[in-house]
Design a binder for these strands. Structure first.
Lengths: 387, 387
DNA sequence: TAGGTTTTGTCAAGTCACTTAACTTTAGGA
DNA sequence: TCCTAAAGTTAAGTGACTTGACAAAACCTA
């Protein structure tokens, strides 16, 4: 009746709801046999048969082998096929650019880390140029077996404002005005700390949890909130920007905006360390890594600074816990995931706050790019088969 | 085939999904005509016809009249019927008990406020006794036209821990161990501040918003978080218990648990006011209401105290905004909803925080009972026809 | 007051995504 | 080699939806 061409957005209408839920299950849980899909989704074998036939014909799903149970016929194993396509995820940091290309079900197709020399660090609008170059280089590698590019995700070290389809970074206002992704590929921007939080949920210590808080402490400090299974972004993308918490705060004190970050960042830690370093304690450590190394060896002056810093971080964690009560806090970043400091942070939080488990991140530098990859993959899946 | 008796929980299986979505729409949006339901749900007229026939036969839906459009035949208007039943909501405060009986679509059936004299204030386990008496008194009034009691909600001025079906209050550990609701009626407990926040969303200034923060400031201070359309409770029901935020907080200061509430509550405000009251300024105000009244008249000493308190509250709001960035904050409670203080709070938040709209609550004392009524009605609807 | 138009509601027939039941295929074990 | 168990297909049936035609009830025009 209605003459409309079958656009990409209409794909979801081309499959039955059973087929879409099969796709979604393979997307979320990886390869599965028909019996596994059937019992997980409550579908009969004939329905599964036709669903997989639909999806296979379009290349959305492919058979990757057979598995033998204890008895009876082998079961065929399926996963997402080339028709499902792939996503490109880019962590556009100021010191490096990490790129991952992956299928929607998160199989790695390509990986690259480009370290920037200190005299070519990206700032402001330069980032969109760097991202564009990285995208172009990655597109040149594209193989037919990867299928279509379904989404492009970029993690940025700045505040990101929610929008309809894509999102525009503010702070540097027109950060992405000069960059457009290929043809009709959706562009997804997200704050890098939020990405790392999502990575903890999908790959890290917060695996499968629907409520937790991720606090990243390095040169800067930031927080990612996952509540009710969803990332909390806030009205203007500032949820978790705790570096701007009013500080100091107490009777007779006039709090300032952005006071906290100046006080608790890596630079402040090292300044205090140098100032308080005893003349007879040897050379003062040059950076936080050296400070933590000394503290780990039991160096008294270093340990005192670490303990002091842990108390400040504990107060921050307690403030967040007091507002959110997530039950679980994951500490990340060059300072936050440090094993030496962790017990002292726990001690402070135990004293100030509700029962809260505190863990150190184990994902390291790949956390952010894994998180933006997940955002891109989730978006692509939603476009293809609905939520 | 399977011999199973049709229990209350199986009702959802007795209706088609169309019928259930018709019920849900009438539950959420109140009375509607068939054409309205049809266009809202995308259902054809024959489907609607059979859905309404199903629901009417069970009394879940009733016809309440006909409306005439611009042209053509009158459309029949429907709403939830007696078969849908009713809920009882109780705000069990320490100074009063508010009871509301309502249909699932929030039509008031009965209302009662029982003020406690100061020598019979309920504390600890006495609350369950008081709730039991109130429930019994309300059940005695029950009319056949009210239908079945579907849920019983109780708002409590204490922390409430999430559980499977019902929820148990902690703080006073066995608060509800001596009280059981009638037969198989689900009991829903919720913190009173969280209830007030939900009421703002369903009836108040935050109407229809899916992300905002409610801060109640009176004798105590508490916060309710609505993010992503849902109330955030936290792991141990302590989300929003900002009275326990670490305070004071700054270089060289050792923060304490529960420090904030002691500092910013009504009592602290009046203590500081009495201490700072000039001898020549007349009699010091006896309570916060008198203080705000004087400030409203332009009394210098009173205004100074209000401004000072507004700065403290502004710092609290800023701390919450810094962590959550809700975009909108609603202030409630005897102190919080005060019109005199509001502009000074706004001023402080503007200085310390992200762009944030701040409103005073207009619901007054009924906020809490309206919120727990919504929780009870939502739960009842979910049991009947699913989410 | 009659006839045309518009909207509401119902009846009849058809569609399609599911189901169950029976059959086929493929494995291990007696 | 037959039996049993599990995986997958085919065939027939079900039921919640649809569309299309018709009936009912309101308005407007003449």
């Amino acid at each position: 009746m209605k003459q409309k061409q079958l656009s990409e957005a209409d794909i979801r209408a081309a499959f039955t709801s059973s087929a879409r839920s099969v796709f979604r299950t393979l997307f979320q849980s990886g390869p599965a046999t028909r019996p596994q899909l059937g019992s997980a989704l409550g579908l009969s074998r004939p329905t599964l048969s036709s669903s997989i036939a639909e999806l296979s014909a379009a290349g959305y799903v492919e058979k990757i082998g057979e598995v033998q149970g204890a008895l009876g016929r082998k079961a065929a194993m399926y996963r997402l096929g080339p028709g499902a396509g792939h996503v490109i995820a880019i962590d556009a940091g100021s010191t490096h650019i990490r790129t991952r290309v992956a299928t929607l079900d998160r199989r790695l197709l390509h990986h690259r880390v480009y370290r920037l020399s200190s005299n070519q660090r990206h700032l402001g609008a330069e980032i969109s140029q760097a991202v564009a170059e990285e995208v172009e280089a990655t597109l040149a590698l594209t193989e037919p077996s990867w299928g279509k590019l379904r989404a492009l995700g970029v993690a940025l070290p700045s505040r990101v404002v929610a929008d309809n389809a894509a999102r525009a970074a503010t702070g540097q206002e027109n950060l992405f005005s000069h960059f457009a992704p290929p043809d009709g590929v959706p562009l997804l921007l997200e704050n890098n700390v939020n990405c790392a939080a999502l990575a903890e949920q999908s790959h890290g210590v917060a695996q499968g949890l629907s409520d937790f808080t991720y606090i990243q402490i390095g040169v800067k400090i930031g927080m990612g909130l996952v509540l009710g299974g969803r990332l909390i972004r806030g009205r203007s993308g500032a949820a978790g920007e705790i570096g701007h918490l009013p500080f100091p705060w107490g009777p007779g004190l006039r709090p300032q905006n952005a006071g906290l970050e100046d006080y608790v960042g890596a630079e402040a830690l090292m300044q205090r360390t140098r100032a308080a370093w005893p003349p007879d304690a040897g050379a003062a450590p040059a950076d936080t890594a050296a400070l933590f190394a000394l503290a780990g060896e039991g160096h008294t002056a270093a340990l005192a600074q670490v303990k002091r810093h842990a108390e400040d971080i504990g107060a921050i964690v307690s403030a967040c816990v007091g507002v959110i009560d997530p039950g679980i806090v994951v500490l990340g970043g060059g300072i936050g995931d440090n094993a030496i400091m962790l017990p002292y942070v726990r001690e402070t939080v135990d004293r100030l706050s509700y029962p809260t488990e505190i863990y150190a991140s184990s994902l390291g530098a790949d956390a952010t790019v894994l998180g933006i990859e997940k955002i891109a993959a989730d978006h692509a899946c939603e476009l293809l088969v609905g939520i």
